[in-house]
Amino acid sequence: MIKQLKFIIYTRPFICFLYYFIRLYTATFRLKIENEKSWQSMLNGNQPVILVTWHQQFFSAIRHFKKYARYNPGLMISRSRDGDLISAVARRSGWRTPRGSSSKGGKEAMAAMIVHLNTYGFGAHILDGPTGPMGKVKPGIIKMALQTNALLVPFFIDSHQAWFFNSWDRFMIPKPFAKVRLRFLDPIHIYGEKNEDFDVLRERLETLMLPGLHP
């Protein structure tokens, strides 16, 4: 029974159903967007931009982020079975999805993501994905920023009513018809002096991002 269920979950009809279910569900949110124009004006001016957030919070942005399809956005996603579902939904939303993580295919996916950013100038990155630990910025984003000269734009999501899963990231899903706020911080430029340690840049970004993580 479990094998049959898993087979159904990864079929094309189920993925199509999941995509439209997410769109319908998230359409119930009373969504408020803050500080979006500040980074879009830079992107429209050919400045590369990478949106960054925590794994906990990306679900609520899926519907709104379809509006960015015209920018040919990219998002690196793991080669796990869960990643298959996420990647399929992202592609239906107009996003390119290089596949890989630190445990499998990460080097190739990172290289593909850097090429994508240098070509199209826009992408997003889940800082502590796909397996955590929660609130720990992985070093890949620093490499991407340094090799593409991209501005990083942190975004956070909060809701006055939400469920939090008992998972490593305390994954958040706002309840139907909840007030949801998608808040962008001002763009930041990750760069270091020649003698500055790579991990110092990672820790600097982590310190900036942690206040937006729901405990």
Score class of each variant (00 low, 15 high):
7 F>T: 14
8 I>K: 03
12 R>K: 13
14 F>D: 10
29 F>I: 07
33 I>Q: 04
46 N>Q: 14
57 Q>T: 14
62 I>Y: 08
66 K>A: 12
72 N>L: 06
73 P>V: 10
77 I>Y: 03
78 S>F: 05
79 R>C: 10
80 S>L: 04
83 G>R: 04
83 G>V: 12
84 D>M: 07
86 I>C: 06
87 S>E: 08
87 S>K: 02
91 R>W: 00
93 S>K: 01
94 G>H: 05
95 W>T: 10
96 R>T: 14
100 G>T: 08
103 S>A: 11
103 S>K: 05
109 A>V: 07
114 I>V: 15
115 V>Q: 14
117 L>T: 12
120 Y>V: 11
132 G>C: 07
134 M>Y: 06
137 V>D: 03
148 T>Q: 07
152 L>G: 03
155 F>E: 07
155 F>C: 09
158 D>A: 04
159 S>L: 04
160 H>A: 09
160 H>C: 04
161 Q>L: 08
161 Q>M: 06
164 F>A: 06
164 F>N: 06
166 N>T: 12
166 N>G: 09
166 N>I: 03
171 F>K: 02
179 K>F: 03
179 K>Y: 04
180 V>N: 02
181 R>A: 08
181 R>T: 15
186 D>V: 00
195 N>E: 15
196 E>T: 15
197 D>H: 08
198 F>K: 07
200 V>A: 14
205 L>E: 08
206 E>H: 02
206 E>W: 00
207 T>N: 11
215 P>C: 08
215 P>I: 10
